[in-house]
């Protein structure tokens, strides 16, 4: 065991550095998820309206962010757009922006799907007691749609957290980037260090994502009991 390389995880500040990197990943995920989900709720509700122009624009927005790979989006926003538009944002801000726009796009489809799955008579009953449009969404449609959104939303959350591993491409010091620094710094003496570093990163990502899926299961169970 002495020469297996597990000790590089705890040498010097290495462990704290990895946790610091994990915090960067978590921070970017949280900020972009909060902004993206709120924006997605709004866009999703707008997509159930009958206005054809609005629907087409939102549909194009969704398809653009769903089709273009995240790596390309990050590259576009970090390296290419600044050249043409003279805006120079820091890497973390770019990451949050791209992820929030991506989450909003995917979320809008989840929300739209959930809203149109609420039985039609619920909406009609709401209209019958005199609720106006926004009230209908606030008191009738959204509360019933939330349960339908949860599984897909949690899935999206874990996808966002895992996708932060791409951020090293735009110089964000996330957990994977720091892991690679540690692996390469010790490559000469501990060629198998990669195994331990990636092993730890696996556990750290698991700790971040597992509570989310446990939470989702809990919410779904509660939903079923209520029904």
């Amino acid at each position: 065991m002495a020469h297996s390389g597990i000790n590089i995880l705890f040498a010097g500040q290495n462990f704290t550095r990895l946790l610091g990197g994990l915090w960067v990943s978590a921070k970017i995920s949280i900020v972009s998820l909060v902004i993206g989900i709120l924006l997605g709720l709004l866009l999703g509700a707008l997509r159930t309206l009958k206005n054809p122009v609005l629907r087409t624009i939102l549909r194009l927005y969704l398809e653009f962010f769903r089709i273009v790979p995240t790596v390309v989006l990050l590259f576009l926003f970090y390296y290419i757009l600044p050249k043409n538009f003279n805006v120079n944002l820091s890497a973390q801000i770019v990451a949050m922006l791209v992820f929030a726009l991506w989450v909003a796009a995917e979320m809008s489809d989840i929300v739209r799907g959930a809203l149109i799955s609420v039985p039609r008579h619920q909406k009609e009953a709401g209209m019958a007691i005199g609720l106006n449009g926004p009230q209908l969404y606030r008191y009738v449609l959204l509360p019933q749609a939330v349960g339908l959104m949860i599984p897909a939303t949690i899935n999206l959350m874990t996808r966002v957290i895992k996708t932060t591993s791409l951020l090293l491409l735009i110089s964000v010091m996330d957990v994977v980037n720091i892991g690679q620094q540690i692996i390469e710094a010790n490559r000469q003496v501990y060629p198998n260090g990669a195994f331990w570093v990636y092993g730890l990163i696996f556990i750290l990502y698991f700790l971040l994502c597992y509570p989310l899926s446990a939470w989702a299961r809990h919410l779904e169970r509660r939903q079923n009991n209520n029904a």
Partner: peptide
């Protein structure tokens, strides 16, 4: 670089 010893790398103290 942050991962190419001995040219540009990061030591155990960051």
């Amino acid at each position: 670089f942050g991962d190419l010893p001995p040219y540009g790398w990061v030591d155990k103290n960051g």
